[in-house]
Amino acid sequence: MTISIRSLHFQAIMGLLDFERTSPQCIEVDCEIAYGYQKEERRFLDYAEVASLIESTIKQEKFLLVEDALETLFGLLKAKFPQIETINITICKPDILPNCRVCVTDFRSYL
């Protein structure tokens, strides 16, 4: 099975620049997670819990780099949901440049 969380958006501190350290900016996250679903054991992923974990972690940690946020999220998600097989996460800062959306994407496989 695969769950997808699209356009999760919230305000958070993230970035290296002075103004990014003092004023929250819009952060958007897309996440796709493949996992081993086992009906008999009712092992599933709670997408609300996944979305909440992503948002709360980014808000609390106030990452300097998007790359650091990705690394942290991979570890937290896999630890919380051991049935995860693959994770693909994109974090965007849509308002940082006036003429584009800036995003970083990374992927992990635990197969």
Score class of each variant (00 low, 15 high):
Met1Phe: 06
Ser4Met: 11
Ile5Trp: 05
Arg6Pro: 00
Leu8Phe: 05
Leu8Gln: 05
His9Phe: 13
Phe10Arg: 00
Ala12Phe: 09
Ile13Tyr: 03
Ile13Pro: 00
Gly15Glu: 07
Glu20Asn: 03
Pro24Glu: 15
Gln25Cys: 03
Cys26Phe: 11
Ile27Gly: 00
Val29Gln: 03
Ile33Asp: 06
Ile33His: 02
Ile33Asn: 01
Ala34Asn: 08
Tyr35Gly: 07
Gly36Thr: 15
Tyr37Thr: 13
Tyr37Ser: 06
Arg43Pro: 11
Arg43Phe: 14
Phe44Ala: 13
Asp46Glu: 07
Tyr47Asn: 06
Ser52Met: 12
Leu53Pro: 02
Ile54Asp: 03
Ile54Ala: 08
Thr57Lys: 05
Gln60Pro: 03
Glu61Ala: 07
Leu64Tyr: 12
Leu65Glu: 14
Val66Glu: 09
Val66Arg: 02
Glu67Leu: 15
Ala69His: 04
Ala69Cys: 09
Ala69Gly: 06
Gly75Phe: 05
Leu77Thr: 06
Leu77Val: 14
Pro82Val: 08
Gln83Asp: 10
Ile84Glu: 04
Asn88Tyr: 10
Asn88Gly: 07
Ile91Leu: 11
Cys92Pro: 00
Pro94Arg: 02
Pro94His: 02
Asp95His: 09
Asp95Thr: 11
Leu97Thr: 01
Val102Ala: 04
Val104Leu: 14
Phe107Asn: 07
Phe107Gln: 04
